[in-house]
């Protein structure tokens, strides 16, 4: 009986150690893939869905440069970019190496089995990510991040859903859906002098708290060298 107990204890210790190591390995493999990209210039279409915002579909260019520079530019007009959109590039979530890795186990996203990994950033006052409290990554068998949740101190929770295609080898998605928190929008009618013949009603506040932007990437130009001036 004593032997069996010792055997079980050793087995448990061994498996949990390899399990934890496995999480580190997975994350390292994800990073290795992402590290293949030093910079990119992508073009795509951006759809914004916020209850109070009526905007056209925008043709955008997205510029990224290591370690954490990201810029979204509308090619023809104006774009309203959500705060925290820097997370659209998943590299930026993993930029800060100083985090504690927690294993969140295995979950299902649709029909796909994913490994859930939680990242708890350690205090780094110099990091621009010091607003982040917790990042949760959902990683598939190909070491691609399908979903990421970032909880911040001041700006609520951001959620990122990604689907991959021909740039999967670089860990770059074909489509990104970025979900963010919104606040109420209202301007006094005495300021706007609205034409109110249509008697527009206030939006339902209970379902108006989330907004999304969806970027569908058409092309990527990877590692062609990008000037810092692009990000100003």
């Amino acid at each position: 009986m004593k032997k069996i107990f010792v055997f079980l204890l050793l087995t448990r210790c061994f498996t949990s150690s390899s399990y934890a190591q496995n999480v580190n390995t997975i994350l390292q493999k994800v990073k290795d893939k992402l590290n293949l990209v030093n910079d990119y210039e992508a073009s795509g279409e951006m759809k914004t869905k916020v209850v109070f915002l009526k905007v056209p579909v925008a043709s955008v260019k997205i510029y990224y440069k290591k370690p954490d520079k990201l810029k979204i530019k509308n090619e023809k007009g104006i774009s309203f970019i959500p705060k925290g959109a820097v997370s659209i590039n998943i590299n930026n979530v993993l930029t800060n190496n100083a985090f504690t890795i927690l294993d969140g186990g295995i979950a299902k996203l649709g029909n796909t089995n994913v490994r859930v990994i939680k990242l708890l950033p350690e205090d780094d006052p110099d990091s621009y990510r010091d607003d982040v409290v917790l990042s949760t990554l959902y990683i598939d068998d190909n070491f691609l991040i399908l979903k990421a949740k970032t909880t911040t101190k001041d700006n609520g929770t951001y959620e990122l859903e990604m689907s991959y295609g021909k740039y999967a080898g670089y860990g770059l998605p074909d489509k990104v859906i970025f979900t963010f928190n919104t606040k109420d929008y209202k301007i006094p009618k005495g300021v706007t002098f609205d034409y109110s013949e249509d008697q527009k009603k206030a939006p339902d506040k209970t379902k108006a708290r989330k907004g999304t932007i969806q970027i569908t990437y058409k092309t990527y130009l990877i590692n062609k060298g990008l000037s810092d001036a692009v990000f100003k």
């Binding site: 009526k54 056209p56 007009g77 104006i78 301007i187 706007t192 609205d194 527009k200």
Partner: peptide, 16 residues
């Protein structure tokens, strides 16, 4: 550039 119109509960963007 694009025209942004502020209404009481909405923000509208019209392409230029």
């Amino acid at each position: 550039n694009d025209l942004v119109i502020s209404k009481e509960f909405e923000l509208l963007q019209i392409e230029k």
